[in-house]
């Protein structure tokens, strides 16, 4: 049960990251590697603010804005200074490593005995469960802290997904979606596509920053290395999500991103439980994304060749 709750909580937290990656990768069709730095930025900003005694909500909001600022810089480097999209992301990601060290003052900030977003929920659950430290769920005893974090991130993730879905159906949201689809058409319809790219990347990285802030609060520390490979993680989740829910409408695609992240996290948790070396996790994730990107076309062309040969024979 602990494995499931842990996987669900991390899955929900990282689904914010996946929604961010979905905005940049699928909506804007922009390969934004800033994500690897902005998730750590969100975590380090929230960690340092919580240690200083800020309210968890304010700290999370500031972390989200910090992530958005990172995306803003990438967008400006690409649109204003004509730097290639991948290079713009790499530049910002590299700079963020130093920024994160500066923010935290060291490579790791522990969050022991600080008020987090889940604390009010934990107090509420404790009060409802007669001041017990554990909560009975389907016959299993779950620590109140874990249950509180799960409920909090569930509420935050659902609220954020609903806001994004609503936004993508507005006039500006429709223009944002069209920007990735056909920039020439968007300009002909009077939309400044550069502003849209900058705005989209800022929103995407804001979500990633928020994900980092929640992750730091859940795992109880922020670490300067925690962002490595997160972009690929987001991609893997999106690919699984698209297989589950499709991507015909923004709502389905967002549901897919959330479900894909949770499922991927569960699969990872199970694989680790079965003895997968944690050091191999990033390589396995990268191989999965590679296979998911390449295999469908390879299988399709192999099938095509096979049937063509059969037809001629």
């Amino acid at each position: 049960m602990t494995l499931v709750i842990g996987a669900l909580t991390i899955g929900l937290i990282l689904s914010l990251l996946s929604m961010g990656v979905w905005i940049s990768f699928r909506v804007l069709r922009y390969c934004d590697i800033t994500v690897d730095g902005s998730i750590t930025l969100g975590a380090s900003v929230v960690a340092i603010l919580l240690v200083k005694g800020w309210s968890p909500w304010t700290a999370t909001l500031v972390a989200t804005l910090a992530g958005a600022a990172a995306g803003l810089v990438t967008g400006i480097l690409h649109t204003r200074f004509k730097i290639q999209e991948l290079l713009a992301g790499i530049l910002v990601m590299t700079a963020l490593y130093s920024v994160n060290l500066r923010v935290m003052g060291r490579s790791n900030v522990p969050l022991l005995d600080v008020e987090t977003l889940a604390s009010p929920m934990a107090r509420l659950i404790t009060r409802c469960s007669s001041n017990s430290d554990t909560l009975g769920v389907c016959g299993w005893q779950v620590p109140v802290q874990d249950a509180a974090m799960l409920v909090t991130v569930l509420l935050v993730t659902v609220a954020v997904a609903l806001v994004i879905r609503w936004f993508l159906l507005t006039h500006i949201g429709t223009a944002l979606r069209a920007t990735g689809d056909n920039p020439q058409m968007v300009r002909a319809q009077g939309v400044n596509h550069r502003t849209m790219v900058v705005f989209g990347l800022a929103s995407a990285n804001g979500l990633v920053g928020m994900s980092g802030a929640l992750l730091a609060q859940y795992q109880g520390f922020a670490d300067v290395q925690m962002g490595i490979g997160m972009m690929v993680w987001g991609l893997a989740s999106i690919i699984i999500g698209e297989a589950l829910a499709g991507r015909t409408t923004p709502g389905l695609a967002l549901c897919g991103a959330i479900m894909g992240t949770i499922l991927f996290r569960l699969l990872v948790a199970i694989a680790l439980r079965w003895g997968l070396n944690p050091n191999d996790l990033k390589m396995v994730t990268a191989l999965f994304v590679f296979a998911a990107l390449v295999l469908p076309d390879s299988v399709k062309s192999a099938m095509h060749r096979f049937f063509k040969r059969q037809h001629h024979a």
Partner: peptide, 17 residues
Amino acid sequence: NIALAMRRGCRRGFGLA
């Protein structure tokens, strides 16, 4: 697509397209 064209030359806000 047409909703995009309906706002050509106008300010695009947060109303439903």
